[in-house]
Nucleic acid binder design. Structure first.
Lengths: 223, 223
DNA sequence: CTTACTGTTGACGCTGTGCCAACAAGCTAC
DNA sequence: GTAGCTTGTTGGCACAGCGTCAACAGTAAG
């Protein structure tokens, strides 16, 4: 018969294989916590040898970071939302848009943003923080609050903090259903308004006095 | 000389030993992420055989959960804070108190509350969620907002969401120092005020209309 | 068909964890 | 003091998961 009856495995372009593995990994990491997903599981799911994961992604942790990175790349805020009207209107529109995009990602978004999965990993935090930062900057820009460059760093820090409220309330909404979508939207809108309207202005006012000894404590009592 | 020259190890009461191990584990888990802390490390730190950890706490995960539980048991809010004065005064006092207690715990608190450490573990989430719930209920009670029992569930859900803002801003303060303590206090106070004053009232108003089809989406597109 | 390139495999070694039988610290009875 | 007993503690075994790497095989070019 034919000499090469049937190849035991198929040879793919690196990009295609990488993509396929990434897809399987994304699905599994969405279903179970990080530690519960073994590289063997991912390899089996992709119909591939375990060693290939290391070949393409290095460590298991790196693969996970790739998954998170991709998950946090959300469609841009700038398009599809008009930035006209009062502050309240703009705020409500942007919150609404954000909830829409999150709704499409569903539980996977919650699983990734929530307890991350890998633990308090510096690299992972950097990625998430970076994504939060981008979201914060975009929100500020969208709301037309990018003028006072002097306070920009603190403004963004506060917007990242606001991101914590966003994630937590979304978790209440998606997971337990303890908040309806309207509740979530109301909460997020009001909070965002008060931040950009009241907090930012008070920030500018208090900017004069010394801020030297208001730093964070070191690390708490040693024992 | 004395027949029993020097015992190679000391025999402790189970509670004492448990306490000692828990203390060492708490310190280590505060310094490094969960996966980076081996049970061997903890055992060495406590000057104890590794097997003893399993004897007292079962799995490594269980030990970690114990650590988290203890970390989240903070001194009661009720004492040491008087609940008189205007809403703003009460809010500012409670926020201040909370920041004080967190400051003593420092980085360990952040490490534990932040990305948990273990990954999206159901048990861990239950613990954290429970602690958040207690904090939320206490805050509501302290602010004298425990009257409308009809909305109590939603109020608490919103207070848990507020907890997300609290943690995120505290992280900005403790970790990067991107927010000063004053900034954090300002942000948290204003947000809390607007929630209990404005959001809750709007919640009561919208309570009439049907809220049936405002549930969370299922789980997003399958692939 | 032959050859070379490289995507892919499978096995090896290492680390970390859970388990458990043996050991010994220290109290009690004599 | 010493023999005996209780039980806190140890150390080694077995196993699972991960990273590495040399060898293998599909596949396109000559």
């Amino acid at each position: 018969m034919s000499p090469a009856a049937s190849p035991r495995w198929k040879r793919l372009e690196p990009d295609a294989r990488r993509e396929q593995i990434l897809e399987c990994a994304t699905r599994l990491f969405g279903e179970r916590p990080y530690a519960e997903v073994s590289t063997t599981d991912i390899a089996r799911e992709a119909g591939v040898a375990r060693g290939l994961l290391n070949h393409y992604f290095g460590q298991k942790r790196d693969l996970y970071l790739k998954v998170v990175k991709r998950m946090l790349l959300m469609p841009g805020l700038e398009e599809s939302v008009t930035m006209t009207g009062t502050l309240r209107e703009r705020v409500e529109r942007s919150v609404e848009w954000y909830l829409d995009t999150v709704a499409t990602h569903g539980k996977t978004y919650v699983a990734v943003t929530g307890m991350g999965g890998i633990g308090s990993d510096p690299e992972l935090e950097r990625i998430i923080s970076e994504a939060d930062d981008v979201a914060a900057a975009k929100t500020l820009e969208f709301l037309g609050l990018k003028v006072e460059v002097g306070n920009d760093a603190r403004h963004r820090a506060m917007m990242r903090s606001y991101g914590g409220l966003v994630k937590a309330s979304i978790r209440e909404w998606i997971r337990g259903g303890t908040l309806s979508r309207e509740d979530t939207q109301l909460l997020l809108s009001e909070a965002l308004i008060v931040i950009v309207r009241d907090v930012f202005s008070q920030l500018a006012k208090q900017d004069g006095p010394a801020r030297g000894d208001t730093r964070a404590p070191k690390t708490g009592p040693k024992r």
